[in-house]
């Protein structure tokens, strides 16, 4: 999408007067739609639509060997795939840089033990652990990909169920794991502290959250902050442009304020979600 100067000025003036092109104020989000459990054979899944941005996340579990330096912990891996359905630019290997950037930010946001407890995923110290593979599929880009991805990941992890292991038989090097026979013998993951990312975008002299595709074009610099409860778990500046240290501090404050609010509203929605109302893409 390319904008002409007049369109950019229009957006700029809107931000200045706290009345953006689509009628939001500077701290407002576009409508978010969330569905969980829509990929049948994944352990947990979620589809999130933030206006035009569409993200599908599925969680799969594998049994793996823990890292030697962290024998008590399981593993958490993120894989992002930018589908060519989103834009023809992603065809072939075109989306790989964006995919790598997203996966790296997610990994660093989830690295701190305060955000996500990996110790629960350990099965047998130093020998066996669960590996959670979080696969993210970007289906449509309508701006603010980072926020949408982080929310969808959180919802998918909330939706995930880890099978209970009844007993472990150790015979020399052979380890046999007996998974419970009942499908309902599962443990939910705790995502209360899982980070929520907020992209703060500077347009003109003001900062806004949740930029649309057009607003991203007018931005002079943006910062992604990952908020876990009221703490920052990652701060990264993305895209081109530069920010003054004072603006940086202001945008971090704005990011934190909005992040806490967003997280609270999102957790409420997650707890209220009804299991059989979902219809997937046929809606």
């Amino acid at each position: 999408m390319s904008l002409c100067d007049a369109e950019k000025t229009f957006i700029l003036h809107g931000v200045k007067e706290n009345f953006r092109v689509d009628g939001r104020d500077r701290e407002g989000y576009r409508p978010i739609e969330l569905e969980t459990n829509i990929v049948q054979h994944a352990f947990g899944s979620a589809r999130l639509r933030l206006a035009n941005t569409d993200v599908l996340v599925a969680v799969k579990l594998e049994i793996d060997v823990p890292f030697p330096e962290r024998p008590f912990e399981g593993k958490l891996e993120f894989f992002v795939d930018c589908s060519a359905n989103a834009t023809p630019d992603f065809e072939g290997r075109g989306g790989e840089t964006l995919a790598a950037e997203l996966a790296n930010i997610l990994t660093s946001a989830y690295r701190s033990p305060q955000t996500f407890n990996l110790k629960k995923l350990c099965i047998l110290k130093g020998r066996k652990c669960w590996k959670i593979c979080v696969d993210i599929l970007i289906l449509e880009c309508g701006g603010n990909l980072f926020d949408a991805v982080s929310l969808a990941v959180k919802a998918a992890l909330h939706n995930s169920q880890i099978p209970l292991i009844k007993s472990i038989n150790i015979d020399g090097d052979n380890i046999e794991l007996n998974v419970s026979d009942s499908v309902f013998d599962c443990e939910k993951l705790d995502v209360a502290n899982a980070p929520v990312m907020v992209t703060v975008c500077k347009i003109g002299d003001q900062c806004i959250v949740d930029p649309s595709l057009a607003e991203e074009q007018c931005s002079v610099g943006s910062v992604v902050v990952a908020i876990s409860q009221e703490y920052f778990s990652t701060v990264t500046s993305i895209g081109k442009g530069s920010l003054h240290p004072r603006t940086m501090c202001n945008s971090l404050e704005l990011g934190q304020k909005v992040g806490i609010r967003l997280n609270k509203a999102f957790m409420e929605t997650l707890h209220n979600i009804q299991p059989d109302e979902d219809v997937g893409f046929l809606k």
């Binding site: 990929v39 054979h41 994944a42 899944s45 599908l56 599925a58 799969k60 594998e62 894989f79 795939d81 589908s83 060519a84 065809e91 072939g92 593979c133 696969d135 599929l137």
Partner: peptide
Amino acid sequence: INTQFSMAVFSTNERKKRP
């Protein structure tokens, strides 16, 4: 006519390595 086929990594029972 340019076509591209791709499969989500979670689309099969076993997780795929590449889409």
